[in-house]
Amino acid sequence: MKKSLFLVFALVGLFFASCNRENINAAQDDLTELVQLSAARSAATTDTITKQKCKGKLVEITAADLPAAITAYINTNYAGAEIQFAGKDTAGQIVVGLKLADGTHKGLIFNADGTFSKALEKYPKGAKLTKVEVSALPSAITGYAASHYADYTVKAAGRNDTGEYFLIIEKTTGTEAEVKASRKVLQFNADGTFKQETTPPSHPEGPMGKRPKHGK
Rank of each mutant, 00 (worst) to 15 (best):
D47M: 12
T193S: 15
S147W: 00
A69T: 14
L31W: 02
I109F: 03
C54D: 07
A63D: 08
P67C: 09
G103N: 10
I169K: 04
L7T: 06
S135L: 07
T48H: 09
T62M: 10
V154L: 12
T76D: 14
E170C: 02
A26V: 14
K53R: 09
N23K: 04
S147V: 00
D161R: 11
I169S: 04
L14T: 11
E133C: 08
G103I: 10
E178L: 03
A63V: 01
K106G: 05
K55Q: 04
E22D: 12
K171N: 12
K155V: 04
V12G: 01
A119N: 13
H105Q: 14
V8G: 02
D65H: 08
G174Q: 02
K125H: 08
S4A: 15
K128F: 13
T90L: 11
L34Q: 08
S135Q: 14
M1K: 12
A63L: 03
K131L: 15
K3G: 08
T50W: 08
K3E: 10
L37S: 11
A63W: 05
R211K: 09
L108S: 02
N111D: 09
L11P: 01
G174A: 10
N111Y: 12
S42I: 10
A156S: 12
H148V: 13
N189Y: 06
G163N: 10
A27G: 09
V12M: 08
Y152I: 06
K99W: 07
Q196S: 13
S139A: 11
A190K: 13
E170A: 08
E197G: 02
G92V: 06
N189C: 00
A190I: 14
V95L: 06
Q187W: 09
I169G: 05
P67K: 14
G13Q: 00
G163I: 09
V179G: 01
I109L: 15
H214A: 01
T193Q: 05
L11I: 15
G87Y: 02
T104L: 08
